[in-house]
Simulated assay, not measured.
Amino acid sequence: MQPTHAEVARTLAAGHLPATAHIACRPGPLPVRHVTDAHGRVLLLSPRDGAVTAALSPAPGTDDTALVLDISDVPPVAGAPSLGRVWVSGWATLLAGDEARQAALDYADSDPASDLLDVGTTQVIHRMDVAEVRYERHGVLVEVDPDEFAEAEPDPLRAIEFDLITDLADHHVEEMAGYVRRQLGPAARPGDEPRVVRLDRYGFLVRLGARLARLSFPRPVADRHDLAHLLHPVLCGRCAHRDEAA
């Protein structure tokens, strides 16, 4: 099992990666702070008197502004492949009153930034209604349906992927190497030193020298606790030996 294009696009746009905005009829691009809410709409947080807010000021007679968000993956560790790049296009509208307060709460679900408390005074929130999503990886460009993008769930492990991989590298190298060799069987070459370089809800990617191998979980995991439960037999040597004996 692997994530769909819509799931990867939602993961990249979730808000943990840097983004730049190309705003219609404005110089740029401009760096922006953003998250994607539970409905797949992008929320932009910016200073009231800042360059982003000024650039998003609608033209006379309109109440929204067209823009494109450009977001590229940043691999968590050296030797890890990139998940690619996503462009999210749509129209941004400045929120006020109850809508702005609710948007701040929605924003805090993904990023509890302290300056969300200043929304309505020194900070503003724009909501971007998504019209088009394009996802690119290895030179292949895919159009993602906006409804599928909205319905997809971002990967629950992406924000903590670096911490998880670092923990495996610091404390469980031998256990993971043994597990990978058992799973790969004859495909594991002598001298290979398996190293986990990516993790997602469906499995993990292992680097073996110049090669990469993907190993899938028996089921998608829900969160860090669920992942720990699923990997416990792998990381607990005695459990692994007992299971093999059985």
Rank of each mutant, 00 (worst) to 15 (best):
R211D: 12
L30R: 15
Y135C: 02
G97Q: 05
H232T: 05
S216Y: 14
G28E: 13
T62W: 00
G90R: 01
D167R: 15
Y202A: 14
A21T: 08
D163W: 13
R238V: 04
V140A: 15
R48S: 11
R137N: 09
G90V: 09
G191W: 07
A21W: 00
L212M: 06
G97F: 10
S72I: 05
L215M: 03
V119R: 02
G139A: 15
L95K: 04
V119D: 06
R41F: 08
R219V: 04
A80S: 12
D147I: 10
V130M: 06
V8P: 09
D98R: 11
V197W: 04
A131N: 12
P218K: 09
G139I: 11
A55Q: 03
A13H: 01
D167V: 13
D70G: 01
H232P: 00
D73C: 12
A51Y: 01
P81S: 14
S216L: 14
S89T: 12
V144D: 05
G97D: 09
R214H: 10
G97Y: 09
F204P: 08
R182W: 02
R101E: 10
E244H: 10
L199S: 02
E175F: 02
D115Y: 02
P31D: 04
V144G: 02
V142L: 09
P233L: 05
G191R: 04
V206I: 13
I71Y: 15
V196M: 15
D73E: 12
T166Q: 15
P154M: 04
P3R: 00
E136I: 09
Q2E: 15
V68W: 02
P47D: 04
M1C: 11
A24K: 11
H172V: 08
D223A: 15
A51H: 07
R33E: 15
T122A: 13
V180L: 01
I160Y: 05
P27D: 15
D155M: 08
D73N: 13
V88N: 06
R48I: 08
P112G: 07
Q183L: 13
P18W: 10
A14P: 00
R195H: 01
R211P: 03
D106R: 13
T4I: 00
R181F: 06
S57K: 12
L168D: 04
P154W: 03
M1I: 09
L157A: 07
L230M: 11
P75L: 01
L141W: 06
L215W: 00
D129Q: 13
Y179C: 01
D106Q: 12
L83M: 12
C25K: 08
C25H: 07
G185P: 07
C239R: 14
V8S: 12
L44F: 07
P112W: 01
Q102C: 04
R10A: 14
D109M: 06
D115S: 06
E99W: 10
G237I: 03
E153D: 14
V124Y: 05
S46R: 05
A13I: 02
A92D: 04
G237V: 02
L45T: 00
Q102M: 09
A6T: 08
L227P: 08
A9W: 02
P218S: 08
D226Q: 05
D63N: 11
H172G: 03
G61E: 08
L141A: 10
R224M: 03
R101N: 00
F162I: 06
E151Y: 00
M176I: 09
R137K: 12
E136L: 14
L45H: 05
H172C: 07
P112Q: 05
V88Q: 03
P76F: 05
